[in-house]
């Protein structure tokens, strides 16, 4: 595999992870985690673990993002307690 591609993927993974922690909006954080999962899936595929990459793409980037968004929809901007 071309090492430049690996480097770009790794840098993007770290950026996504930091942004998901730092961003103040929960919906953005959920979507950033989805992007992080998808980039992780690419990283697994680069390392030759195709089965793990497939699982990451379906579970991490697909369904768990939907679950996070569904949960975020039931929160409010300010806490009630």
């Amino acid at each position: 595999m071309i090492w430049q591609v690996e480097l770009i993927i790794l840098i993007l993974i770290i950026i996504c992870a930091f942004a998901a922690i730092k961003v103040r909006d929960l919906l953005s954080a959920a979507l950033l985690l989805g992007a992080y999962s998808f980039l992780m899936c690419l990283a697994w595929a680069v390392m030759g673990a195709v089965d793990v990459a497939f699982t990451e793409a379906t579970v991490g980037a697909g369904v768990s993002t939907v679950f996070c968004v569904a949960a975020v929809f039931h929160t409010t901007r300010r806490t009630k307690d």
Binding site: F54, T55, T58, V63, V66
Partner: peptide, 21 residues
């Protein structure tokens, strides 16, 4: 090929979730 119960099950579940959305 890559795949199996977990991935197939999640894709199947995702299709119903897509319908619900």
């Amino acid at each position: 090929s890559p795949g199996g119960g977990f991935q197939g099950g999640v894709i199947m579940g995702a299709s119903v979730i897509l319908f619900a959305i």
